[in-house]
């Protein structure tokens, strides 16, 4: 099973991953709707680069009270018709990469738009349990 990994030392903070994700999955240019969080910011003590990505921990799948998120062949799938908009998955997601939308949520579906756009290979898909 492969999941998305972030390599901070390679990231340049261009946000192309955020934008590629929102364009592919929400059909909009809006980095805040990306299903990952990558941030490269200057803080008081220097540059801070952080990335949070879906590592397929399955917490959302396990905890969703109505089974609106399921796993299929190593990919998450969201069933909007079942979702009750309770927001539990958004709150409990360990890397905090589930996006709350007006109706329903967005989970990383491993479309690879982010890693395809990343200019520095800071995002890669790798075996989860290697």
């Amino acid at each position: 099973m492969k999941a998305l990994f972030f390599h901070a030392e390679k990231c340049v903070g261009c946000k192309l991953c955020h934008l590629a994700c929102s364009a592919q999955n929400e059909q909009v240019f809006n980095p805040r709707l990306a299903r990952l969080k990558v941030n490269s910011r200057y803080k008081r003590d220097g540059l801070e680069v952080k990335g949070q990505t879906c590592d397929l921990c399955m917490r959302c799948v396990e905890d969703c009270p109505v089974d609106a998120i399921v796993e299929n062949n190593g990919r998450l799938k969201f069933k909007e018709d079942v979702c009750t908009d309770c927001g539990l998955c958004v709150d409990i997601c360990p890397p905090q990469v589930i996006v709350k939308k007006e109706r329903g949520i967005g989970v990383c579906v491993q479309c690879r738009s982010c890693s395809n756009w990343c200019p520095t290979e800071a995002l890669t898909f790798e075996e989860v349990n290697k």
Partner: peptide
């Protein structure tokens, strides 16, 4: 220490 980009 690191390379840094503008948005996009």
């Amino acid at each position: 220490k690191a390379k840094k980009a503008c948005f996009g």
